[in-house]
Design a protein around this nucleic acid. Structure first.
Lengths: 141, 141
DNA sequence: GTTTAATGAAACAGTAACTGCCACAGTTTA
DNA sequence: TAAACTGTGGCAGTTACTGTTTCATTAAAC
């Protein structure tokens, strides 16, 4: 992983959870962007993914904005990770094996198993952390 | 993670283990590159890192080449991962927090804990897989 | 109804990092 | 002394994310 989409998505979600956004007091991509120190478009791009994953809802038009689609304790960091990136944590090669080399011929499957193992392991770890856990750790002062 | 340095490094190490390379029959970066379908320079760049980490030894000059520095069952995928990349699996933002926002101010530490957790978890997982395990799974035919 | 304040989406330049490639210096052995 | 390696630096090509602008669309508010 090189990009910060997961980190930004978690930030977005934590603000939504912490501020208890809902109809009547929706959060805007502008305010989110200012909290994250980025551009509203960047926020909207990620919010689009979170919306597809049914983690947030967004409303167009005046006094529109963004809110959580579920309660914060029903959203895990795994949900957010899956929504924000389609990449795996590790990456295999995509070249054809060299036929005359047994290692080269086996490498594809061997690496796939390793990568899948790390991925599954990490997702299980992230699944145990809920958005509510995170929001509760924000120091209020 | 976006790059394939870990995958290539594991491939290098597996060939060395599988072929039982040692003085008298060292492996060259040329042969490794052909098994991996890449350039010898790419191999040598990664071998340099593996050498620094004391996982392989390389010898210059005619009939020089590369061998494992330890037995394959004393080398874990964690060792190889640490040697081949200094990046973390996930990445935090590096911007200053927005002072007026409690979430923004707490986010740095919150994300650090999450990222460290995933990292530790994954390294523990990789530590359990040895190079010998991998080499043993190469289908010999 | 018209204005206003949002999201959504497309396009584009800038940036950063890895990959692949070349050239060549340094080294060791035969 | 020639041959065969590694080590290293540099550079072009590629790819992907980030930041930004712009504009269409939508919906509430007045």
């Amino acid at each position: 992983m090189v990009d910060q989409r997961f980190a930004v998505s978690v930030h977005i979600m934590t603000v939504l959870a912490f501020e208890n956004c809902s109809r009547g007091s929706l959060m805007t991509s502008e305010k989110l962007a200012s909290s994250i120190r980025t551009n509203p478009t960047v926020v909207r791009r990620l919010v689009a993914r979170l919306t597809d994953a049914n983690l947030v809802r967004s409303y167009k038009g005046k006094s529109g904005g963004i809110e959580l689609a579920r309660k914060a304790d029903e959203i895990s960091l795994r949900d957010i990770y899956s929504a924000s990136s389609e990449k795996t944590l590790l990456k295999a090669r995509n070249k054809r094996p060299a036929r005359q080399c047994p290692v080269s011929c086996s490498m594809g499957k061997l690496m796939k198993d390793v990568i899948d193992g790390v991925e599954t392991n990490s997702m299980d770890y992230l699944a145990k952390i809920s958005l509510a856990d995170l929001a509760a750790k924000v120091s209020k002062e």
